[in-house]
């Protein structure tokens, strides 16, 4: 299976690392894109990157419960200081990127990031 480092994801997407800079050399197995947190809560993949256009505390809480430690926020969505605080507590890496959901996923897929299913 092709692994991708969070660092590579950030480079491909020209993304800003807004939390967890020290952990960007971690490997990611696969990606999952959703704005529906209940969907994310059904997954049992490990080392997953969540790609979402939703930017609120529930995204970070969902990631905490689902053991997701990398979140990519698309469409210029801004991470709040409260979100960053909870993410840091849980050892997560948060990325902000300017591309649309479609564009973001396309670039990651083309670079070889695997889907969950």
């Amino acid at each position: 299976m092709l692994l991708m480092k969070i660092r590579e994801i950030a480079e491909i997407l020209d993304a800003r690392v807004v939390c967890g800079e020290e952990s960007i050399d971690r490997d990611i197995n696969c990606g999952f894109a959703s704005d529906l947190m209940s969907d994310v809560l059904t997954l049992d993949s490990e080392h997953l990157a969540l790609i979402t256009g939703l930017a609120n505390m529930q995204v970070v809480r969902t990631a905490e419960m689902a053991d997701v430690n990398c979140i990519v926020f698309v469409r210029n969505k801004i991470v709040s200081p409260e979100m960053r605080e909870v993410a840091a507590e849980n050892d997560m890496v948060l990325l902000e990127c300017k591309y649309s959901m479609f564009n973001t996923i396309g670039m990651l897929f083309q670079a070889g990031l695997q889907p969950v299913y």
């Binding site: 529906l36 947190m37 209940s38 809560l41 059904t42 939703l54 529930q58």
Partner: peptide
Amino acid sequence: REMGFGAGMGLPNMKR
């Protein structure tokens, strides 16, 4: 729904 819930999956997720 804006919070990322409201798809009617919560109770089934809990049961599972």
